[in-house]
Amino acid sequence: MNWWRFVVANEFRKILAFRSDFWVTFIGQTVVMVLIARALWQSIFEANGTEVMEGFTLPMMTLYYIIVPLANKIMTGENVGFLSREIYDGSFNRYLIYPISFFQYKILTYLTHSVFFSVQLILIFCVFNLIVGHGLSVELLINLFFGIFIFLCAACVYCMLAMSVELISLWADNVWSLMVMIRFFVFFFGGSYLPLDFFPSWANALLKFTPFPHLISLPIRTTMGLATTTEIVTGLGSLFVWGIIFTMTAKKMWAAGEHRYNGVGI
């Protein structure tokens, strides 16, 4: 049974339901955020009187911040509350009567969002390279392909992390703030606010033992062609390990909390 096709089609319809809002937000977020980031870095480059900082030139920094908003969206897939909201209002009941796994269904809806934002990234990446005159060389496309692949792996890992936290809603009154806290950590230590190359070396050494740099910085660096093969391989290995840890945590949480769900909502 190809139930997943219907789920994916339905999610796409939901994403595009309010088109004017969608496009204004998408263009506004991407363009304005890049312009603000570029203005900040331009002032820093000018203040330092240099053209390269930690291996980044201003055009490279611009590309980095073009990718960042979409990287955040790919990783975070569906919005905060994609599971807890349904537990709180009781609509979670439907997953208990569907003849499919609740985990599979949720991962699929989550990844549909991530895939959608990946398509936007491909589009923007290609347009940027055409505008700045780099063209679309085979090397660029290969980097983009590997970058998207790692982005989707990171989305799977973050989905499991998010699911573990969202399932706390079976015990706690509200987990929204917990999810936002995790986002702050992931975005800051993952490299959304600024490239991790600017962090002190001791901080980078410590961060390697966490999932954060592999969730955002690694796929961005890969897309930009900055990541080495060793970096990609070890990063993917780390994502795999963290993915297993978070999946097991989510499964354990569900096993422990399933019987606490009363189906009524609060």
């Binding site: 950590f185 600017f198 002190p200």
Partner: peptide, 21 residues
């Protein structure tokens, strides 16, 4: 945490420059 992250962001930037804006 939001406050700490905001302060840290500029602290890290100031490791690489003396002036911002």
């Amino acid at each position: 945490i939001y406050y700490v992250v905001n302060i840290l962001l500029f602290k890290v930037l100031f490791l690489h420059t003396n002036l911002i804006g």
